[in-house]
Design a protein around this nucleic acid. Structure first.
Lengths: 148, 148
DNA sequence: TCTTGACTTAGAATTATTCTAATGTTAGAT
DNA sequence: ATCTAACATTAGAATAATTCTAAGTCAAGA
């Protein structure tokens, strides 16, 4: 779903479209790097110097409740946010702390509404490990060490 | 793996088995409710009145690094811990905040070592929703309201 | 224009986690 | 048995993430 559609949906549902809300959703639309709240806050400060953390938190919560963004809790202690709401796997590299999207086909939970009598509302499939970039880096370090 | 085996493994790997470490691992062995750090800390305080939060955090980190327990980051802002390290799904009820184990067969990631060039070290498959108990409660509330 | 309610703001408060410096414990050397 | 060095634990301070609060801002409708 593109930005205009999401903004329209917010509007239709009677949610007032403030400049801050617009900016936050737009930021997530343009930055698919799964930013933390802190990252979003500081990035927006450059445009809107008076924006407050509370607004960022409130807006992210609001957008999440409207189902327009999703929260990622893959890391201890802090949340990240993702413009894409369709369920997909996230990969966290514990070396560089980057979060990647990964596509995994054939999840047996896909489309399921219930499990063990519990109502399923959201899937958060997380994978932890070392990303390809860091594996490369590690390799060249090893080479470097071997050459000495 | 039972408690004795895990303690033995710690010992074999040269990790000193202090009373606190023993108590924390034992607590997780006996309490499979995915306790938060705070819950663990206060429960242990009853037996060991001088135990400190730092020890609880350090020990949980240590046990995790030895691969004897796993960390659950399903909730915003805080960690829970699980004695069982075999990969399994966790279900968080956003009404009552309980975390349940659920068994899901046929995950296409099972046994995979790599994905998109990234090295997989740990899977954290989380499901969010409303648990069976809370669904029941909701139902009886509805009935109650209807009867009035 | 005035009022009302919703939104934003700055900063305080709270919560979770990590850090620090002092103290306690233990195993091996003597 | 005692000493010592390394490691572990402790209380509390520091930091980080999030939520709360009270005051100010804005915008739509009477």
């Amino acid at each position: 779903m593109d930005l205009k559609e999401k903004l329209a949906e917010l509007n239709e549902k009677g949610c007032s479209l403030t400049i801050q809300r617009h900016a936050i959703l737009e930021y997530l639309y343009e930055n698919r790097t799964h930013p933390t709240v802190e990252k979003i806050y500081y990035s927006l400060k450059e445009k809107f110097s008076t924006i407050s953390r509370a607004t960022v938190y409130n807006t992210l919560e609001l957008l999440k409740n409207y189902g327009l963004i999703q929260e990622i809790t893959i890391e201890k202690g802090k949340s990240r946010f993702d413009y894409e709401v369709k369920t997909h796997h996230h990969f966290l590299c514990h070396r560089c702390n980057r979060v990647y999207d990964v596509n995994v086909e054939g999840c047996p939970l896909a489309g399921k509404k219930m499990i063990n009598g519990h109502k399923i509302e959201e899937l958060r499939p997380y994978i932890i490990g070392i990303c390809s970039k860091c594996l490369q880096k590690k390799k060249s370090n090893d080479n470097f060490v071997m050459m000495n």
